[in-house]
Design a protein around this nucleic acid. Structure first.
Lengths: 400, 400
DNA sequence: AGACTCCCCGGAAACGTTTACACATCTGGG
DNA sequence: CCCAGATGTGTAAACGTTTCCGGGGAGTCT
């Protein structure tokens, strides 16, 4: 009898400890502790024994048995970029509601790091991963399809890739900004972009050229500068551009670049927006912190994060789902940095005005269907200058 | 013979699969795969079999056996606050070098969430945790000592708490800022603080009053405003303060508050720093992004993060170490927002100047020993305006 | 009263690894 | 020639859970 455990006193209590103390089998103890089955008397004894020894189940052993870790990984280039912070918050919320925790990886935008992370999924240390790569290579795709746990991509992906992904139409987003600036009477729009060999950089470049072409405006290469997606690069790129051209507006590929550009503009004593209008992209928290506040194209980072997390959880629950693709429509949030008359007075100061892009078609549509979109004032709470514009969400390929 | 696995074809390959295919025992297979022992012939067979079936060891099973998860958790209030981003990056680096990954929890500064997180450590889903609580309660302490895995605290802790922790002397940090402002001729220093029932809020309040007292200046309660540690609160608190008093300087309990205050100042058309000098705390990335750039008291967040991670890994390796405490000395980084003549011209524009506080004694010393510290120009690379001032690090209690 | 159902319980097998231990074989030296 | 040691291998026991399955008891229906 009872020859199973030799010295049950050593180490932390396990199910065996509890079972022995309650005088029942480990099966009964486990059942009671999981709330399934058990006679009233057994339940009482086990509960009491567990309380007395301070039993807490071991998460790892449970994972081994249940084949799920309760973890979801997120891999982004730069956890300092507020756009990823917003995404992370949204993902965290969904994932926590699903009873899981979030493991965050910072890849530094490095392809090798990303691949290695995807490959490591083979160890199944997480239940799934959300990844937002700046560049996509064949190795990425191969690692994703080979992975034993599901992967969801935030960002553009080849149309035939059998991977869930949530995307936004950043070309249409750029078009919104260009339309807005042209409607405000600007004619020489400078463009501060990220590297063209990145997915977002390429899309923004294409969007910018297409938008100008649609308005019959020739592209002046002197008005285009390339850096990376960081603050310092934005600051430097703006300085280079201003040294050789006289833009009356600057469109920036993300908010960090825009804040850098704003710094250069102000330190060169150019008035914003009177002399140079400024528009960023991503509509991060940062856009509301600058003075003047930054107009910015929202690409729905929080929505994309939320949607990605939902897709991932659904796929974890049912791996046989067909590959799905979700879209989040961009919208423009207008603030003081691009409005000629300074901060609009009618609502509260710093109140945003939003313009929403029409829903994009399948894949990357060739051009933006609308001409200059009408501006619509959005109702918003006077307490917070946060935009309440809701980006449109669509899903295709799923059976919802 | 071979009656162990009934259908080895199903599911992903395990050690059993590899062993069977190589015609050896699982023990031999495991040994080869771990690189310990094995004859040349066995090694060849096992390697080949593993490659053929694409074997990857299961992280969970390995964890169960080895009693380590390879994960380290970090719990902070707000992953959007750049001070935590800096800390997180530093921790990530150390932890990755130690072959582990980082699990990030956002607590929202909520005590109940923090406690629940600490309690969950009993499940041993991570090898240890770094936590930076805004408030510390007895429940915190109890949960920490009870935890089966080590916990390191970033922030003040009762002196007798048997928990590793790394702290900075934020009172001395506040004193650095006050000294600087007084030396620059400011006399009516406004103070925008966080809640007084938080550890950092209380310390900053005490530091502010002590610094004024040391200079024989009476405290004017009209010049003190309380909000929380966020941007919006800073903006609102500055507006309230400016409505009832006429400060010639504003000292802010962190950079987010300072950026909010800057927004209010600029939108009320007060010139910074000519009319109102501005100093923040934490010296985050944000401080370099504003215009004018923000003077800020560095509390060495990256250093604290790094040190905390080191302490944690050391303790994981040797749980019997005595409780240790590490100190990081604050320093002041002077930028354009607090210098009367605008951006200092001598070095490159936006070049920081740093003043380092003397090493604090044990525990919270009653007052700051130095009078107005001398300003020392720091050499820095012309390319980046990042400060290179290194905060001093000390450890006590350990056997290093 | 017998058969049937339902519920509760305990033994044991899984999950996939590492490793203690025992055994066999081989080598070299006395 | 025989034994000590070294070396390689396989069996089985861990790590801590959940869960399948079969047995037994109590109750109900016919």
């Amino acid at each position: 009898m009872g020859r199973k455990r030799l010295q049950p006193a050593a180490g932390r209590p396990t199910v065996h400890t509890v079972a022995a103390r309650a005088g029942v089998s480990i099966a009964s103890a486990s059942r009671v502790l999981n709330g399934v089955g058990g006679s009233p008397e057994t339940i009482r004894k086990v509960r009491q024994a567990a309380a007395e020894v301070g039993y807490v189940p071991n998460a790892i052993a449970r994972s081994l048995q249940s084949q799920r870790t309760g973890l979801v990984a997120l891999a982004v280039a730069d956890i300092g970029n507020p756009v990823y912070v917003a995404m992370m918050r949204a993902i965290e919320a969904v994932v926590a509601a699903g009873g899981r925790q979030l493991l965050v990886h910072a890849t530094g935008g490095d392809v090798a790091t990303e691949i290695s992370l995807l490959r490591r999924l083979a160890h199944r240390y997480v239940d799934g991963m959300i990844v937002s790569p700046i560049r996509i290579t064949d190795s990425h795709l191969e690692a994703m399809v080979v992975s034993p746990v599901p992967v969801v991509v935030v960002g553009q992906l080849p149309d035939d890739a059998p991977v869930d992904n949530v995307r936004t139409d950043s070309r249409a987003g750029v078009a919104l900004a260009v339309d807005h600036l042209l409607a405000a009477g600007r004619r020489r729009i400078g463009f501060l972009n990220g590297p063209l060999d990145t997915v977002p950089g390429a899309a923004r470049d294409a969007g910018f050229r297409a938008a100008l072409a649609r308005h019959g405006i020739p592209v002046d290469e002197d008005l285009i500068e390339i850096g990376d997606f960081q603050y310092a690069a934005g600051r430097a790129a703006a300085a280079r551009l201003l040294a050789r051209a006289e833009p009356d507006a600057l469109l920036c590929a993300n908010d960090l670049i825009a804040v850098g550009a704003l710094h250069t503009l102000l330190s060169e004593e150019r008035r914003v927006p009177q002399e140079v209008a400024l528009v960023g992209m991503d509509d991060t928290e940062l856009a509301q912190m600058t003075f003047p506040q930054l107009s910015s194209v929202s690409l729905g980072s929080a929505d994309r994060g939320r949607r990605a997390a939902e897709l991932l959880l659904e796929r974890i629950a049912d791996p046989d789902l067909p590959p799905r693709r979700a879209h989040v429509a961009p919208s423009l949030v207008v603030r003081a940095s691009s409005i000629p008359g300074g901060t609009p007075r009618p609502p509260a100061p710093g109140q945003p005005t939003a313009v929403t892009a029409p829903e994009p078609g399948l894949g990357t549509s060739p051009a933006v269907p609308t001409a200059a979109a009408p501006m619509t004032a959005m109702p918003a709470s006077p307490a917070s200058p946060r935009t309440t514009s809701t980006a449109g969400l669509t899903t295709e390929g799923g059976t919802r």
